[in-house]
């Protein structure tokens, strides 16, 4: 009897160990698939141009150096851009988060006329390819006006291109990058919350707004962190809207896409007598720039990861 139990216990332990080994293998395998391109980028960023054409060099440069980083940091005005883009992206994604939270809660908890139709409109904003509205969007902010007010005061519509105002307007009105997705996600989340909480608050005399801010929002923290993270990352790497609204280099994304050309023109003549940009140089600069651009995002993600888990633990009542 005792032996029987012991052997069963052993079997259980073996099965558990085996499953954790299999899990480890799968996870490491997938991690490799994901990390490989990044590793290649980092390796290339330490190479010099001759390493790229050397068949015996695959990952590790023969003479690793930081020249690429120095050039890229100078060429991008990295530190200035980092702060500027950081503040910009954070503001945008907070604005988006706020307006999307309000909208999502409205859709999740209230009954009003045309609700289904309006929610269909949310999905519509998400599935319309941005290329369709590119031209009208530009025209809209090139000649910006609200009911002819600006025309009446200043005599002509306002030109908002090359300022950051279009971004703020877009995100405060849930029209930023993939905001429909955020609304959808948050609505799904609020719908899954038990209604008893709000009813209890209502019985205790709390108003709608107060219920929303003091009861719903604290339990929605993990979702809010997720949405904030998405908003930040997509704003950070966005080249579509920044290319459309900004003609000068205001944000990191637009600086990065012109990086190699900019550096090449400022370092006139360092590549000998060539008058075209060598593909090796472009590749090195792009990779270094990309690494520099992704790095803050990874750090941010690692920080948010913590509050992500904490937020869930604090809101133990969910479900």
């Amino acid at each position: 009897m005792k032996d029987n139990i012991r052997s069963k216990f052993n079997m259980y332990r073996i099965a558990r160990n085996l499953s954790s080994v299999i899990r480890a293998v799968i996870i490491i395998g997938i991690c490799y698939v994901i990390l490989h391109p990044l590793i290649v980028k980092i390796c290339v960023s330490f190479m010099s141009e001759s390493d790229l054409y050397d068949a015996s060099v695959k990952y590790i440069s023969k003479a690793p150096n930081l020249t690429n980083y120095k050039m890229a940091i100078d060429g991008m005005e990295y530190w200035k851009m980092l702060i500027k883009t950081g503040i910009f992206s954070a503001t945008i994604s907070l604005l988006q988060l706020f307006s999307c939270l309000l909208t999502a809660y409205g859709f999740a908890r209230f009954r009003f006329p045309f609700k289904k139709l309006l929610f269909g409109c949310v999905i519509l904003t998400l599935i319309v390819p941005p290329q369709i509205i590119m031209l009208p969007l530009f025209m809209k902010y090139r000649f910006f006006d609200i009911f002819g007010i600006f025309k009446a005061i200043k005599g002509s519509p306002v030109n908002l291109i090359d300022s950051l105002i279009p971004f703020y307007i877009q995100s405060a009105t849930c029209m930023g990058i993939r905001n429909g997705l955020y609304i959808y996600l948050l609505r799904q989340f609020f719908k899954g919350m038990p209604r008893e909480l709000e009813e209890a608050a209502f019985v205790d005399g709390s108003g709608k707004l107060r219920t929303f801010f003091t009861i719903m929002l604290p339990s929605a923290i993990p979702m809010m962190v997720t949405v904030f993270l998405f908003g930040f990352v997509w704003q950070w790497t966005d080249s579509f809207y920044s290319g459309l609204f900004l003609t000068k280099n205001h944000v990191m994304a637009s600086v990065l896409s012109n990086l190699s050309a900019n550096i090449y023109s400022s370092y006139e003549g360092f590549g000998g007598s060539m008058n075209f940009i060598s593909p090796g140089f472009v590749s090195m600069m792009n990779n270094t720039g990309t690494v520099l651009m992704i790095l803050p995002l990874i750090i941010l993600y690692l920080i948010c990861q913590k509050s992500f888990v904490e937020g869930i633990e604090r809101s133990g009542i969910v479900g």
Binding site: S99, L102, T103, Y105, G106, F107, R109, F110, R111, F112, P113, K115, L118, C121, V122, T125, V128, I132, I133, L135, P136, L137, M139, K140, I169, Q170, A172, T173, C174, M175, I183, K208, F212
Partner: peptide, 27 residues
């Protein structure tokens, strides 16, 4: 309740009818 619901989704309503829909019609 309906009024509150519409107040909550107001940001989206402004964005959709003020910005998005006119652009779609243009397109």
């Amino acid at each position: 309740e309906a009024v509150w619901g519409i107040l909550f989704i107001l940001p989206f309503l402004i964005g959709f009818f003020g910005i998005f829909l006119p652009m779609i019609i243009d397109s």
